[in-house]
Design a binder for these strands. Structure first.
Lengths: 203, 203
DNA sequence: GTCTATACGGCGATAGAC
DNA sequence: GTCTATCGCCGTATAGAC
C-alpha cells in the first residue's frame, strides 16, 4: 500500500514534468516510465491510459493554482484593489510556472468540443461576483460603464499572453531569461494601471 | 507537370486543414494522404517528411498573413491611426482564420530552443520602425513616455489572446459562434481605445 | 509521376504469468 | 503490484510496376 502510493506518485510527478516541458503529444509513455524508474505496464495499471493520466495532472494543476485567484475574484475588496491583487497573484503564479500558459492553451486547442466538461478549466473563469461588481460600480458612476466580459478578457489577455510568447519576446529584444523575469515584474504594475485607467469615468 | 503541381497542392491543402484543426502532432500522415485522396507514398515523394511539410505550410501561412501587418507597422502613418489600422487588420485576419492563434502558439511551445531560426516567425514581430516612432512621440510630448516593448506586447495580447480562449469565452458566457464573432467585432473599436488611452499624456 | 507493396523501429495499450 | 511479451497503429523509407 505504501509502495503503491509511492509508485503512483512517481509516475504522476515524472509525467507532470514532461508534459509541461515538451507538451503532452510529444511525451511518450515509455519516457514517463523511464523517468519514473518503473515499468511501462505500471503506467497502465495506475492510470488506465495516457489520456487519463493527463486528466489527473491537469485537474490537479488547475486546482492548485486557481484557488487563490477565485478567492480574490469573489472577495468583497474594493474594485481597483481587487484588480491589483488579482493581477499580482496571477502574474506571480505564472512566473513560478512559466510553462503553464502554453500548456493550458494547447489543451484548449486539443479538445475544442468538450471544454465545459472539463471542470478543472472552469476554475479559470469564475466571474459571477466580479461581473456584478463591475455593473454595480458602473451604475453608481464610480467607473465608466463597461462590458464585464470584455473587461475580464482584457485582463486575462494582458496577464497571460506575454508568457505564451515569452520566447518570441526574448529573441526579438535580445534579452535573457532573467531579464524577461524583470520585464514580467514590471507588468505587475503596468497591467493594473492600464485596466484601471480604462475604467476611469470620462468628462 | 500540371498534374504534379495539382497533387502537391492537394497534399498541402489537406495537411493545412488538418494541422489547423487538430494540431500537427495529432495529425497522422496517413490521414493527410486519405483526405488528399492520394497514396501515402506520394506524401514522401513531394515532401520528404511530415516535418518538412509542416515547415512549408507554416512559412506560407505566415507570409500570407503577415505582409499587410508589417506594411502598416512600417508605414509613416500618424501613431494613433497606425494603431487603429493595425488592430483592425489583425483582428480581421484572425477572424478569418480563427485557428491560427492556437496553431502559432503550439509552434512556439513545440520548439522553444530555435525560434529565431524560423524566419517565418520573425514576421510576427518586426517592430523597429514602430519602436522608434513611439520613442520619438514620447520625446515630443505628444504621448506619455512609455516602453515600446511593453506597448507592443500589450497590443498583441489584447488582439490575439481572445482567439486563443475562444471556446472558454463562448462556454462561459453561453454564446454561439456567431455571437462570438460579434464580440470580436466590438474589440476592433475597444482595443485601440484602450491602447491610445494609455498613451495619453497625464496632467 | 503515380501507384502497390512491404518493412523498420517507436508508439499506446493490454493479456497473462509471477 | 510488478513484470514480459505482444498487438495494431504510427512516421518514414524504399523497391519496383505502370
Amino acid at each position: 500500500m505504501a509502495k503503491s502510493r509511492n509508485t503512483e506518485q512517481k509516475i504522476f510527478d515524472a509525467a507532470t514534468e514532461l508534459f509541461l516541458e515538451k507538451g503532452v503529444d510529444r511525451t511518450s509513455v515509455r519516457e514517463i516510465a523511464s523517468r519514473a524508474g518503473i515499468n511501462l505496464a505500471l503506467m497502465n495499471y495506475y492510470f488506465r491510459s495516457k489520456e487519463n493520466l493527463f486528466d489527473a495532472i491537469f485537474t490537479a494543476l488547475m486546482k492548485k493554482n486557481s484557488e487563490e485567484l477565485i478567492r480574490i475574484l469573489n472577495s468583497d475588496l474594493e474594485l481597483n484593489e481587487k484588480i491589483r491583487q488579482y493581477v499580482h497573484v496571477y502574474i506571480d503564479m505564472l512566473s513560478e510556472n512559466p510553462l503553464l500558459v502554453s500548456f493550458v492553451m494547447s489543451i484548449l486547442h486539443r479538445s475544442r468540443e468538450r471544454i465545459t466538461e472539463m471542470k478543472a478549466i472552469n476554475s479559470l473563469y469564475a466571474t459571477d461576483q466580479f461581473t456584478r461588481q463591475i455593473i454595480e460600480e458602473g451604475k453608481k458612476g464610480n467607473i465608466r460603464r463597461t462590458d464585464p466580459t470584455h473587461f475580464f478578457v482584457d485582463m486575462l489577455s494582458l496577464i497571460a499572453f506575454p508568457f505564451a510568447i515569452k520566447m518570441l519576446v526574448m529573441d526579438k529584444n535580445n534579452i535573457t531569461e532573467k531579464e524577461f523575469q524583470g520585464f514580467i515584474l514590471e507588468r505587475k504594475e503596468r497591467v493594473p494601471e492600464i485596466l484601471i485607467d480604462n475604467l476611469r469615468p470620462r468628462r
